[in-house]
Amino acid sequence: MRGGLHLGSALATALAIVTAALVIVGLLSAESTEVAAGSDIVLQIVSITIALAVLVGIWNLISVHVGRLIRTRKGWIYSLITLLSAVAVTAVYVMDETASWTGELEGEKLSPRVFEAVQVSIESALAGLIVFFLTYAIYRLLYKRFTWTSILFMVAVAIVLLGWLPLEDDSLVDLREWLMTVPVLAGSRGLLIGIGLGTVIVGIRALTGYDRALREP
């Protein structure tokens, strides 16, 4: 609501300002001071809260898919698979921790194997497709467009890739090293500086109560 002041928002803003001020003062203070200790307590609370958020997320995931499965909404089969997977992984983890495996699996830890065999393989395969897309993209780029920028792009890529290879001629390696330490480093630092400025602005907004998350209930 515009122009109105909500008590909850005011309290949240005040609490955020006080906490942020406490943390920043504590971080700038010596570790042995009480302010720093208070700041550390606040940071510990944040860490615990974030850890609990994982549990909340797991609970939300299960409840959503159980609801879809009960109501048999569209895609309920995927919800069923998700729930079965969650139950199976949890069961495997419990079996691992309780050393319940018998026979050939006795004493084995199956959780890392399941993770490696299923999740790592799938996600790695998906990531491996990127090379195909990038290769075709650069081919189409030069096939369709031939400008000075595209030439510059092509030369940079060629230098970096060829410089990555252990060629006998070190000229490309040196050239690649120069690219990595001068232009690429400059760009990376500029990117990091921008990130730092953004972080400061967010901090100031939080300290002054201008952050939208604090103003709107």
Binding site: Y139, R140, L142, M154, V157, L161, L165
Partner: peptide, 16 residues
């Protein structure tokens, strides 16, 4: 793979 990428870049340039 690297050589293939470079080759396709050159191929695209030639076709263009």
């Amino acid at each position: 793979g690297i050589l293939a990428v470079l080759g396709f870049m050159v191929l695209g340039l030639i076709v263009n």
